[in-house]
Simulated assay, not measured.
Amino acid sequence: MIEYSYIKQRPKSKALYERAANVFPSGVTHDIRYILPFPNYIAETKGSRKWDVDGNEYVDFAMGHGALLLGHGREEIVSVVREVIGKGTHYGGSSELEVKWGEIVKNLIPSAERVKFTGSGTEATLLALRLARAFTGKSKIIKFLGHFHGWHDYLIRAERPPWEQAPAGVPFGVLKTVIALPCDLSLVESILASDKDIAGVIIEPSGGSWGKVPVPDGFLHQLKELTD
Rank of each mutant, 00 (worst) to 15 (best):
P39N: 02
I179H: 00
I191Q: 02
S139F: 01
S94E: 14
H72N: 01
E103H: 07
R19T: 12
S186W: 03
L16G: 04
V84F: 02
H90D: 09
R160C: 01
T45C: 12
R49G: 05
M63T: 13
I203D: 00
H149Q: 07
G27M: 06
A43S: 12
S5L: 15
G207V: 00
E3Y: 05
V99T: 13
R74C: 09
L16D: 04
K8G: 05
F172M: 10
R33L: 12
F135K: 15
G73W: 06
H30T: 13
L155S: 11
F61P: 04
W151F: 11
E159R: 00
I202E: 03
E159A: 01
P214G: 00
A168K: 05
S186G: 05
E76S: 10
Y91P: 07
I32R: 11
I198G: 01
Y34P: 00
V53T: 11
V170Y: 00
P205A: 15
P11G: 08
Y17A: 03
S95M: 03
D217N: 12
E57K: 12
E75N: 14
S5I: 10
G150E: 07
K140N: 13
V201H: 10
N22S: 15
L187Q: 11
D60N: 10
P37F: 05
T177N: 15
D54H: 06
L131D: 13
V59Y: 14
R160Y: 03
D54S: 07
W151R: 13
K140V: 09
Y58A: 00
D228L: 04
